[in-house]
């Protein structure tokens, strides 16, 4: 009897835990944020974008030179 009661209790508790997980369980990259590794990603993207922007600016400048010659 005791065993059955205990197992019922366990069953009840396990469903309780699984429900608890469902309510908060939308997975987000919180670990990446808390460990600060997200900044590595940001740094990479920003560097790539700044590089492309500088590239565009140099094209702009070269074009200006050619326009002046024409």
């Amino acid at each position: 009897m005791k065993k059955i009661l205990l197992s019922f209790l366990m069953l009840f508790l396990s469903t309780f835990f699984s429900f608890a997980q469902q309510t908060t369980g939308v997975e987000m990259a919180d670990q990446m944020r808390s460990s600060g590794k997200i900044y590595v990603v940001i740094a990479t993207i920003v560097i790539v974008f700044i590089g492309l922007a500088i590239y565009l600016f140099t094209i702009d400048r070269r074009l200006k030179k050619i326009e002046r010659e024409n």
Binding site: V26, M28, A29, R33, I38, I42, I45, V46, F49, I50
Partner: peptide
């Protein structure tokens, strides 16, 4: 550059399927 930084760090709603 602002949207790159803010887009990855600012708060977003936590939604199933979509996640990050």
């Amino acid at each position: 550059i602002y949207t790159l930084v803010a887009g990855l760090t600012f708060h977003v709603p936590t939604l199933p399927i979509l996640h990050e």
